[in-house]
Amino acid sequence: MALTEQGAPAGRPDRPHVFWTMRRRQLLWVWGFLAVPVLFYGVIRFYPTGHAFWLSLTDWDLMSDPSFIGLDNYTRLFADPQFGRVFRNTFAYLIMGTPISLILSFIIAYALDRVRFGHTFLRALYFLPFITTASAMAWVWRWFYQPAPIGVINDFLSGFGIPQMAFLNSTTWALPSIMVTAIWAGLGFQIIIFMAGLRAIPTTYYEAARIDGLGEWAILRRITLPLLKPTTVFLVVFSSIGFLRIFDQVYNMTTNDPGGPLGSTKPLVLMIYQTAFSSYQMGYAAAQTVVLFTILLVVSLLQLWILRERT
């Protein structure tokens, strides 16, 4: 639809130089439609982004006026032993969480896709956790992970005489325990998306492959997986961002020792929250958010680049 070709309103051929041409009128509509959104994105997205960058260069406790300190917050951050730990934790969530949840959800989606009997029922079982509230379920899991005699899992284990696992009370296992909760909560979504991706593959491909005499495994490897790639790329990026920004579960599962024993579960977002809203070091917290932004950007771009279409 090219607006340029429509000079004047159809009904008025005798007045070619009218000011309110069709095009001008449409432009008015366009910017009328966009006025509030443009204002919104400017004030609620772009201005705060710039503000966060600026704050990261200041020392500010909310009480006195902010003072400009250059890159001091960043130097402090990279020298902060807590940040080292938090940085490793954040990537531990990503590096374990994303592959495990993707592989699990693909296997389940692949199997579920071939099941007819009770399909809707089975799918509902897997999808239900996704629509629960993370903060509520974090408490349920926290209870599951308790040591005997109250912890559900440990009680189950000790019923078989198996020594209990420390889970949240261990610096080694606390992070994986919380990660399992996050995987559990997000699995349903990934399964559904994978199933949608599987459905989108035209059946003719499979038929052709079968005529060529390919076995199940070969079909999976040579047809299904390659054709599923856009879905996989989307899920890799989506789930990575989710794990890098993990907060709800950690916050709720470790309220009496925030971030787990010796900070062993503390992700970057919790550190940001504590720095900004318990210690009121706004500048320092802003610098941490800039680092988070950079991490997210680099990880997403890197993934898109690695998984790009090779032609």
């Binding site: 005997a148 005699p149 440990n154 000790s158 005489g161 198996i162 020594p163 209990q164 009496n256």
Partner: peptide
């Protein structure tokens, strides 16, 4: 302590928090 060696009743609570 129970059969699996887990604490069933604690003599004393330990809670620095």
């Amino acid at each position: 302590v129970d059969a699996a060696g887990n604490m069933a009743v604690a003599g004393m609570t330990l809670d620095m928090g």
